[in-house]
Design a protein around this nucleic acid. Structure first.
Length: 634
RNA sequence: GGGCCCGUGGCCUAGUAUGGAUCAAGGCACCAGCCUGCGGAGCUGGUUAUCGUGGGUUCAAAUCCCACCGGGCCCGCCA
């Protein structure tokens, strides 16, 4: 049994009785009551019924509840609500089922599991290290991927590399024209390239000759088969490899790198432009602002008609392609089977042992991968990209009916930094009094993921050492890092998607309270009891399984796992799972305080160990889905 | 001009989708407790909130509707 199963049974029972009593059919929604005294699940369906039936809710509730028979729950009518309180049979069955299914216990019954899901995340420009803003994207995307995979969907994780845009070309220009060496000395490529960009960007933008050369470089990258393109690709791959190291460090892995330049070189772009043209959506103005550009017509579309310039440039007058232009073609590939496909080659073997592939029109092989034509393509982008994503989706809808349901931008709020943090990293006092400051690589106002993780790991190691002076150095090293990962991931996951995260370094370095490390600590304590327990009688759960209220509550919380997995999938809200992890940990910590195990007499000891065992099985999986390392010591 | 997001104790955050039940729930900070007892990164108790403002709908509004105020963002031959 599980919570999810129980509420479905309850809804079914309510529906049946509403019908038999001759009331108008309303959806018998149930929810968790705000107050414990009202049971585990309650329904306010009687309020809805009373609107049409003229009876008082309380009377209806009495009538319905007296007819309901469920063997796993008591029923009570109160104040017009119908309340359900799960009984011993429920608790007993939950434990049985967890023991039987193990880590599979949280998989909800979902139809259409044979669908293919594409999740595209991270998508950092290959010209800088991963910073906190991108990390929010990576963590959200990776967690979604973990959950989809867990539930049983074929899940493909992409990382789109924007190598043919203006930012990479700044770097290449710096190397070819401004005397920067190809290879950094004593610096990672991602950091090096971030530094170059900050140093040369303004210079290039303010110099017409350099600016012109920059667009020549973009053109060459898009054309391929020339030295500039090869240099750009080589350099970008170096940067991407460093960025990947950061992703791996926090537990995020990919299946395929999709290079933006390959979207053009493969002929995919031409294919899609042709389709758009056949639908009459493209035109080339002979004069005016967009003279000689290829423009997507949107002005006749409802959502765009109030804009001053609704139409969107896809090909610039110099023949280079805009970001949106390439993104439309790429998005089309994701949800369809176009006549042209990329060429692929293995890029690198990741620390999890899985091969990461890459598109590569120069050195790749055709027909070696089949990863597109997804039933649902989720693209993680921050909210500032809502508009261009709307353009992409609208463009797709002109050429495929799948666009509406299969293409799904996943929007989330940006990460900014607090005034204090901005002051700290830039040394500029004027920031100190600001509420929030936007990150900017060019202004040196960036919190890089690696730097933060290193700082966190340092703090964590000091704490660990304090508690465990004899700990081995290499163990300490990896524990420090895993605590840092937990802190960052949980922080990103628990926050509502719509919220701007105003990141403060000092705040982030606290490892107590509602935090990832607290979850790890909870796990470590639980695990340590299990370890000390040694052998115990796992055979018969005593019929009187629980003695105290909190034991009941812990089991009920355990039973909610699949419910929150389903909520996460249905609403695309990783937050639900993060909050579940916290609630489950809360319940365990209460259990821990008031229910001693090892020194109890045998019967109670065995029962509690069995509850503990179930908790560990579920909690371990929850942490895994969140990407939080479950530590046995810390 | 058009559109999007946010506003909840001193600070941060949940609750808003699907309006309801006695105290609006956590965390930080602060104060007071709990280790001869399974790991004190934990637990218990306390102080702090007219849920941005004003209207409206309703038997019932943090939640729905309208207006306004404050903060942030987007509408580029940037990405």
């Amino acid at each position: 049994m599980s919570f999810l199963w129980a509420i479905e049974k309850i809804e079914e029972e309510l529906r049946k009785n509403i019908k038999e009593l001759g009331y108008e059919q309303v959806k018998p929604e149930v929810s968790e009551p705000t107050v414990k005294a009202y049971g585990d699940v309650s329904s306010r369906v009687c309020f809805d019924i009373s609107k049409t039936s003229k009876e008082k809710p309380a009377a209806i509730a009495e009538k319905i509840s007296s007819r309901i028979e469920l063997d796993f729950s008591e029923v009570e009518a109160k104040n017009g609500y119908i309340n359900f309180k799960f009984n011993d049979k429920y608790l007993f069955n939950v434990i049985e089922e967890v023991r039987k299914k193990g880590h599979q216990y949280g998989i909800p019954a979902i139809e259409n599991k044979n669908r293919r899901i594409i999740i595209e995340h991270t998508n950092s420009n290959p010209n800088k290290p991963i910073h906190m803003g991108i990390l929010r994207n990576t963590v959200l995307g990776d967690t979604l991927a973990r959950v989809f995979r867990y539930v049983g969907y074929e899940t493909i994780v992409l990382n789109y590399i924007d190598d043919s845009g203006a930012q990479v070309s700044d770097n290449i220009l710096a190397i070819t024209e401004l005397g920067y060496p190809k290879e950094p000395v004593g610096e990672r490529y991602d950091y090096y390239s971030g530094r170059i960009y900050a140093e040369v960007h303004e210079k290039i933008e303010n110099n017409p000759q350099l600016r012109k050369k920059k667009y020549e470089i973009i053109k060459k990258i898009e054309d391929g088969k020339n030295e500039v393109a090869q240099l750009a690709r080589w350099f970008s791959e170096k940067v991407v490899t460093d960025q990947l190291r950061t992703c791996w460090r926090i537990g995020a892995f990919f299946d395929l790198l999709n290079w933006e330049s390959d979207v053009v070189k493969s002929g995919l772009l031409d294919t899609v432009l042709k389709k758009l043209n056949e639908k009459g959506r493209l035109y080339i103005p002979k004069e005016g602002k967009n003279e000689n550009c290829t423009v997507l017509k949107l002005s006749d579309q409802e959502e765009f008609k109030n804009l001053e310039e609704p139409d969107e440039v896809l090909i610039r007058s110099d023949g280079t392609i805009t970001y949106v232009g390439k993104d439309i073609a790429y998005a089309f590939w994701k949800i369809s089977k176009p006549p042209v496909d990329f060429k692929y080659r293995p890029f690198i073997t990741q620390p999890n042992g899985k091969t990461l592939w890459t598109t590569d029109e120069e050195r790749g092989e055709p027909n070696v991968l089949n990863v597109n034509n997804a039933d649902l393509a989720i693209t993680l982008v921050d909210m500032r990209q809502e508009y261009p994503q709307k353009v992409v989706k609208t463009a797709l809808s002109f050429i495929t009916d799948k666009a509406k349901h299969a293409y799904r931008p996943f929007l989330y709020g940006i990460v900014a930094i607090s005034g204090e943090t901005a002051y700290k990293i830039s040394g500029k006092k004027e920031y100190a009094s600001s509420q929030m400051v936007h990150m900017s690589g060019r202004k040196g106002l960036v919190v890089n993921a690696e730097d933060l993780l290193n700082e966190l790991a340092k703090v964590a190691r000091i704490e660990s050492k304090k508690r465990n002076p004899s700990i081995r150095e290499d163990v300490l090293e990896s524990i420090g890092n895993e605590i840092a990962v937990a802190a960052v991931r949980y922080f990103m996951l628990k926050t509502d998607l719509n919220n701007t995260i105003v990141f403060d370094v000092d705040e982030a370095l606290k490892l107590n309270g509602d935090s990832g490390p607290r979850l790890q600590y909870t796990y470590a304590r639980a695990h340590s009891i299990m370890e000390k327990a040694g052998r115990y009688d796992r055979g018969g759960i005593n019929q009187k399984l629980v003695e105290k209220e909190i034991e009941m509550e812990l089991i009920k919380e355990i039973s909610k796992f699949s419910f929150y997995v389903r909520e996460t999938i249905n609403n695309l809200e990783p937050k639900y799972l993060a909050r579940y992890a916290k609630n489950l940990a809360d319940k365990f910590n209460l259990f821990y305080e008031s229910c001693p195990i090892l020194n109890e007499k045998e019967e109670i000891r065995n029962n509690r160990l069995i509850i503990l065992e179930s908790f560990l099985v579920v909690f371990e999986k929850v942490l895994d889905l969140l990407g939080i390392p479950a530590l046995q010591e810390m």
